[in-house]
Design a protein around this nucleic acid. Structure first.
Lengths: 154, 154
DNA sequence: ATGGGTGCAAATCCTTTGCACTCGG
DNA sequence: CCGAGTGCAAAGGATTTGCACCCAT
């Protein structure tokens, strides 16, 4: 989901200083790569982006910084069943869900307030205090439906 | 979610013969372990159950059979962010969702037809042909809310 | 009989960790 | 300055794979 990269980077700086954590080149470079990404990036993707735009950063640092970003609430972690995780920037509070194409792997997003409210309500019905959630819909994207009209999504 | 183990095992047998796949001792033992489980089992849990009730089965076979079960639609795979996958039996078509306690790891289930319908509808709105989905709600279960009233779910 | 299944162990792949060195505040 | 952060490479843990042997059909 599109976010304002510059603004997000500023938020991250604030988070770091509030927590007495040094704002190192590496941390900022990793955060920047994620915040300006248009897609859901894997840790490796992030490392590549950083290497391209700035200066290579160690794998460990990439993972450590991604963890920080997740903890700060500025990023979200996903597992689309590919055997590794993907990350995406989060613009404060905008919940949204994902459709993952079983055929080509494309990920689409949508959001719907009524859905969000219903989810919160249903959780409370089982005496659960919801914090966040993740909805992934697997099936066929438009292109793959056309390419293979009879295909049954896996 | 509770399913009829014997019935499910029969379904698996049918699936195997329909696909010209041998119904080996190991496959049946793995399927049985999963179908009679009350919880969401990891591959290792499954192996342990099989070893206890029947005869030890190789790790590779456990994974291979779990894949078969998922492909046959008789089992479902989950990643609750623990670093490994969990599996649960699926009784034909009964969609249900999960609440995962961030504090103690307990998993609760619920289902709601209105939610299911809304999810299908929203996917179609973005020209996506949904096949199945996964909704995971993270937060605090009732016990953990009481044990730590001020805790903020992660 | 016989083609696929199984077990074992080695291989993979993503992610984490230990440690000496470097740097931001 | 100095404790936290970084890079490297080695470790870790779940899952997969290669291959000789075995068993349902």
């Amino acid at each position: 989901m599109k976010v304002d990269g510059a603004r997000q980077l500023e938020e991250f700086r604030r988070y770091l200083s509030e927590h007495n954590l040094p704002a190192t080149q590496q941390r900022l470079a990793v955060a920047e790569a994620l915040f300006y990404a248009v897609d859901h990036l894997s840790a490796e993707d992030v490392a590549k982006q950083v290497a391209k735009k700035r200066r290579p950063v160690g794998t460990a640092t990439v993972y450590r910084t991604l963890d920080l970003l997740v903890q700060s609430g500025l990023a979200r972690e996903h597992d689309f069943g590919e055997g590794f995780k993907r990350y995406e920037p989060v613009a404060g509070g905008q919940a949204h869900e994902h459709c993952i194409c079983s055929s080509c792997g494309r990920v689409m997003e949508f959001s719907n307030d009524r859905l969000e409210r219903m989810i919160a309500l249903l959780a409370e019905e089982v005496e659960f205090r919801p914090h966040h959630h993740r909805l992934e819909i697997y099936g066929l994207c438009r292109d793959c439906q056309q390419a293979n009209p009879l295909a049954r999504a896996r």
